[in-house]
Design a protein around this nucleic acid. Sequence first.
DNA 1: GTTAGCACTCAACCTTAAAGAGTGCTAACA
DNA 2: TGTTAGCACTCTTTAAGGTTGAGTGCTAAC
Lengths: 344, 344
Amino acid sequence: MLDERKKKVLAAIIQDYIAHAEPVGSRTIVKRYNLDVSPATIRNEMADLEEMGLIEQPYTSAGRIPSEQGYRYYVDCLMQRKNLSEDEVKFINTCFARKMQELKDVIQKASNVLSELTSYTAVVVEPKMEKSTFKFLKLLPLATNQALLVVVTNTRVIQHRTLNIPEDITHQDLEKVSQVLNSTLQGLTLEEVSRMSLNEIYDEVILQRYMWDKIVELVKDSLFSEEYEERIYIDGTINMLDQPEFKDIDKVKSILKALQEGKILKQVLLERPRPGLSVSIGQENRYEGINECSLITATYEVNGNVVGTLGIIGPIRMDYSRGVSAVDYVTKMLSGFIKKYIEE
Amino acid sequence: MLDERKKKVLAAIIQDYIAHAEPVGSRTIVKRYNLDVSPATIRNEMADLEEMGLIEQPYTSAGRIPSEQGYRYYVDCLMQRKNLSEDEVKFINTCFARKMQELKDVIQKASNVLSELTSYTAVVVEPKMEKSTFKFLKLLPLATNQALLVVVTNTRVIQHRTLNIPEDITHQDLEKVSQVLNSTLQGLTLEEVSRMSLNEIYDEVILQRYMWDKIVELVKDSLFSEEYEERIYIDGTINMLDQPEFKDIDKVKSILKALQEGKILKQVLLERPRPGLSVSIGQENRYEGINECSLITATYEVNGNVVGTLGIIGPIRMDYSRGVSAVDYVTKMLSGFIKKYIEE
DNA sequence: GTTAGCACTCAACCTTAAAGAGTGCTAACA
DNA sequence: TGTTAGCACTCTTTAAGGTTGAGTGCTAAC
């Protein structure tokens, strides 16, 4: 629907604005992007693009800046991925080369790498817990009426201190409960565990009914409490302050607030439906604070199942091309790496 | 060394500047702090105070602002504590009234309350680990060559995944090692444990020598790795952005950077020697970023032993009087509360 | 369809002027 | 000797006016 030259002009405006954060004039386009026409011609094209809503003028006689629609068109139709440079690839590889003990270290590293690489803010949501499979749990006695519940899934260790255990439960009782639960739950996903009525696997040999119910309830509560929720890792928050569009302290504040509020951010990331890479621009993000930003996110997978989301947050004028490449690469890296840390 | 009136004038200047963040003139002082002399007299006093280095003029014909020395004098000699209002006390109490499972929840709450109350940034360093006493550990088999080490001290749970366990160690072996270590280390402080040579408690009945050495080494490494370090809790970081002196994005950036860098902050807090409450002003803090701020910190105690530090960070023009009261109150609150969570 | 030319617009920048806050100093006063 | 009124002076802040320059839109010619 746009002819070749209009596309070229639009791409030039967007690229230039991304690079310099200043309105782009007709002369600049001709010079910098060597189109073989005069500025006047470009001006005509720009008038058309503006009518279509793809670019806009901050004031009557300034150059043009891309509108959110313009960015959208650019991302969908014009942009070509910029491959990562050799150095960048090398950088990523060395970062991941260090030996990491646990899944969470890998995830943390991913967000770290992503923010370093792009100079934007990086976010990684850890793998969905409900898809995790139960490996085992252990109830360790702490005091007469306290026990420490340790749960190990294939993705991570959840640990929770439980109070109010009836005083007359012995160490042996706890041990037995652990054993029964382990043999029953072994290999189930947490989703399945949550749907299960643990009370039913009561075995009168072990304990009195009321004790069993009590403990099982506590275990279940702990399993699906906050500790159970997917954690979110954020890196490079202060990179936001480098963006000229956020030199205004009030804007920065509302953004930082949104970033700090892990819950909102998590919701934003988890709401995105499509598997694979996705870009959302400005107002497309409905939450306060984040609607002045753009997000590039991708889902990472294990064995074909989407398990988590990661991405970068930057100004609407962000370098989508580079960003997409970076997110894409790190996602693949993470997907590949993560297998080692998730035992079946 | 300062006569009464000079003290009054200095106090007036500081209080007014704290409240309004603008240079204070002689007329303002007379009017707002009803001294029964004329502005001219005040001007003479101010000239003296300036000569002494307690106040300064941003430019020739502006009012005066306190110098860092001035604040110091104020904090040491002039300031009187402003008692917390009933509402504030009630607020703190309700915050702490909620049932909290673990020590770390109490600590987190303390930093939360402190930042809410003062509108500054709050920091709490968790109790010193080396003073913690060892309760028990458990080695749980994860895979043929992996075990999960869970350590419980009187202050918290440390959990660490250990790799590279020799493959020929059985579950029973792990259980036995746990038992031996538990009975040996029971009740020792971590400091004592760290000085101890665990290899010596080798018991040939249990395991082959090389296996024992290997495991014991891993346990010790885990015990004194990063997981072992005192964690630091920060709250209200973005409150910094509300301060007019930090409306400049570059200043904010260096401060946020310092705050983000937990290690630096921890060092700053742990360096403060004196037990009890202490205030450090501007340049007295040597670290980049923090030297444009003031700190009010206090140590909290358990049974007369200093175990941790907490405090608030704000602009040099911070409300020391209110801040000191708030820190003091919350410290006492925390000291009192914490006993419940530290079992002997 | 393209381009040169030109009048026009508007932010950005500088200069200048006026206003206002506050000082330091002097001389008078108690 | 300490206090005060008065006044000239300084320096920021704010507003107003003028200039510059980038960039546009339109028209007419190619």
